[in-house]
């Protein structure tokens, strides 16, 4: 089902959790809401679920006004960060809960409920845990049961709040792939919230980057990584080298020295130069935009990571670059650096 969010504003006291947010989600998408804590992503998710209400704005699920309905009437599956499994119920009863509390008129008979629960437990590959209590499960198992429970009500959309946040790194990786393939299988429109960029880029087919209650960029994982729309997105996704520069016309200066790179249309004034670590080409001294002395080199895998103290900064500005291992860099060596790809954003304030 498609979701449409329009002009949502939500304040907690004087703090704007959501500041005029618009979002359209197409049927069958797997969307990630990515942002640091306090960016409003969880609030947005909760508003779509009916667990929170906006101060103003609209939410439509499949063209139908959702705000006139409470959480229990929206048929939205919600997977909580800490799973929120009912501790006094077995795994089976947890999954069956949504079916058992349906209005009498549409409630299924016991045999149907049992069959459905069994199917769902099969789907999450945990049918053998049916009679256990949540406290007897591992974190990853709880997560999958929480998902099965949310799917039991045949949700029109599925919302997941930091679905892997409470798991350790290894389980996290496994569950990511599993969630992707599960989505391919059942194809229900899904939104998940995460603060982990890797998770968002790896799992989602579209990523919404949020900061301070606003949407900074919406795009495919490739788009938000390769073409960040704002300074925030550039800094938040992937590792970036950030240098304070001045733009005057098409000239860019660092500490008053011209860099000999085009300003790419950035407005004149104070600005920030963003370069990915691996987009900084290393050459012999005197051939690039920047110059510096290598202070330290660590080599691992296909790259060598070098700390470079930039010239003209009295050694105070140190950046980290990733260079291929075709030529071994040496500590103490003076090198020049040339950004292959970069973005310049006007500095805020």
């Amino acid at each position: 089902m498609a979701i449409e969010v329009k002009n949502i504003v939500k304040r907690f006291g004087s703090f704007a959790a959501l500041d005029n947010v618009d979002l359209k989600v197409a049927d069958g998408e797997l969307l990630a809401l990515l942002g640091p804590s306090g960016s409003g992503k969880t609030t947005l998710l909760r508003i779509i679920a009916g667990l929170d209400w906006p101060d103003s704005g609209e939410v439509a699920i499949d063209g139908e006004n959702a705000l006139s309905r409470g959480a229990s009437e929206r048929q939205v599956g919600f997977v909580f960060q800490h799973y929120a499994l009912f501790r006094h119920m077995t795994v089976f009863e947890n999954v069956a809960f949504g079916l058992r509390v349906q209005p009498r008129a549409i409630r299924k008979d016991e045999a149907t409920i049992r069959a459905r629960v069994k199917n769902l437990l099969d789907l999450v590959q945990l049918d053998w845990l049916a009679n256990r209590y949540p406290s007897q499960l591992s974190g990853g198992q709880r997560q999958r049961i929480a998902l099965a429970r949310a799917l039991a009500i045949e949700p029109r959309i599925l919302l997941l709040d930091e679905p892997f946040g409470a798991l350790d790194a290894k389980v996290r990786k496994e569950l990511r792939q599993w969630l992707r393939s599960l989505h391919n299988e059942i194809h229900v429109t899904s939104i998940f919230v995460t603060h982990d960029q890797e998770e968002a880029l790896e799992v989602a087919n579209r990523v919404v980057v949020m900061d301070k209650g606003k949407i900074e960029q919406i795009g495919s994982p490739g788009e938000v990584y390769d073409n960040p729309a704002t300074a925030f997105v550039h800094g938040f996704i992937g590792e970036s080298i950030v240098l304070p520069v001045d733009v005057a016309g098409d000239a860019v200066r660092l500490d008053g020295r011209p860099l000999n790179i085009p300003a790419l249309g950035a407005a004149s004034g104070a600005a920030k130069l963003f370069v990915r670590r691996h987009d900084m080409a290393v050459g012999p001294a005197g051939t690039g935009a920047l110059e510096g002395a290598i202070r330290h080199v660590r080599s691992f895998g296909p790259i060598q990571r070098a700390e470079v103290a930039l010239a003209g900064s009295e050694g105070r500005t140190v950046i980290e670059i990733d260079a291929p291992r075709d030529r071994e860099l040496q500590a103490g060596e003076i090198v020049s650096l040339q950004p292959r790809r970069y973005r310049i954003f006007a500095a805020q304030e």
């Binding site: 009916g50 906006p54 006139s68």
Partner: peptide, 13 residues
């Protein structure tokens, strides 16, 4: 109120 202006139909679950 809920009918007139759905947004304010604050139903804390």
């Amino acid at each position: 109120i809920a009918r007139a202006e759905p947004v304010t139909a604050h139903r804390n679950p």
